[in-house]
């Protein structure tokens, strides 16, 4: 009944050939994108016997949470068998300070570049942006040396510093572009009102910029959580983040492969960014679109 009621903007009938093709294409693509998530979930809920005889796309006959428990607390990396939980907590301990420091530094730098330019500030900004295009491999070893000189190599704080450094170009760009778009007269009014560099930053700019902080935060949470390379290079095995530990668990050559445990572990590792993604929705999109398009 409702389907045939004309709808203001769309004069086409619901089942026009155009719509069938359009939605058909969308659904087919959706299947490609959803398939891995589905496979991960069903595999992680089966036991090994069922996996061996069955089909990876079939739903579990008997749901078991044993693989999840095992992945979290018993899976082995090398000789350690205390599961992914250790990697999870390492990642949390890396994430929180990295997030706070990298976002603060980027916001402050963006503020300088947008509101308090000085002679040469644009040049430094240009250099910083170039940094975004330097392959990490070029800087891997120099950073090892810098961290060693600072006595931070192998520690969590070393990794925090590395994340802050590599996050700077894109986040500074993001903040700068956002702050530049704030009305300039507001900034002038605040100066006439006697607010200085910090006063304007904390009292005027930050309260107006919540969305961009969220956006930058989202980029940082997913980026830091998903990092693999820096985790491998700059931390010792006992500090390995979750991604590194996950890879070690799944790709370890010893022992019988437990695919259900592997998929549970994989899902567990993907959970944090997925939760961030699903809850932030539009802001996530806005962040990547803003960071990319305005560039």
């Amino acid at each position: 009944m409702t389907a045939v009621t004309p709808r203001g903007a769309k004069p086409q009938k619901a089942l026009s050939p155009r719509n069938i093709m359009l939605y058909g294409a969308l659904v087919i693509f959706s299947l490609y994108y959803l398939l891995p998530l589905y496979v991960m979930i069903v595999t992680s809920l089966k036991d090994m016997a069922e996996i061996r005889v069955g089909n990876i796309f079939s739903a579990p006959v008997e749901i078991t949470f044993q693989p999840w428990v095992k992945a979290w607390s018993q899976a082995c990396t090398g000789i350690n068998c205390d599961g992914l939980s250790r990697g999870f907590w390492n990642s949390v301990r890396i994430l929180i300070p990295s997030l706070i420091i990298s976002v603060s530094v980027a916001a402050l730098t963006g503020y300088v570049l947008a509101c308090w330019r000085f002679k040469g500030s644009e040049v430094f900004f240009g250099i910083l942006l170039l940094g975004a295009f330097i392959p990490y491999q070029v800087l891997l070893y120099p950073l090892v040396i810098i961290l060693r000189e600072l006595g931070l190599f192998g520690s969590l704080w070393g990794l925090v510093l590395v994340h802050t450094v590599f996050a700077m170009p894109i986040n500074v760009l993001l903040f700068r572009n956002y702050f530049v778009a704030l009305p300039e007269e507001l900034f002038k009014a605040a100066r006439v009102d006697g607010a200085g560099f910090w006063g304007i930053f904390f009292r005027i700019v930050i309260p107006m910029s919540l969305p961009i902080f969220v956006v930058s935060g989202i980029i940082q949470v997913t980026g830091i959580w998903n990092d693999f390379l820096f985790g491998v290079v700059y931390t010792r095995p006992e500090n390995y983040p979750m991604t590194v530990q996950l890879n070690n668990i799944v790709n370890s050559v010893q022992g019988v492969k437990e695919y259900n445990v592997n998929m549970a572990a994989t899902l567990l590792t993907g959970l944090v960014p997925l939760v961030v993604y699903f809850f932030s929705g539009k802001l996530f999109i806005r962040g990547i679109a803003a960071g990319a398009v305005k560039g």
Binding site: N226, T266, G270
Partner: peptide, 14 residues
């Protein structure tokens, strides 16, 4: 939103 590690492992399985 997912890491390359997670991506790689899922598709390795599929």
């Amino acid at each position: 939103a997912l890491s390359f590690i997670v991506t790689g492992l899922v598709w390795q399985w599929i």
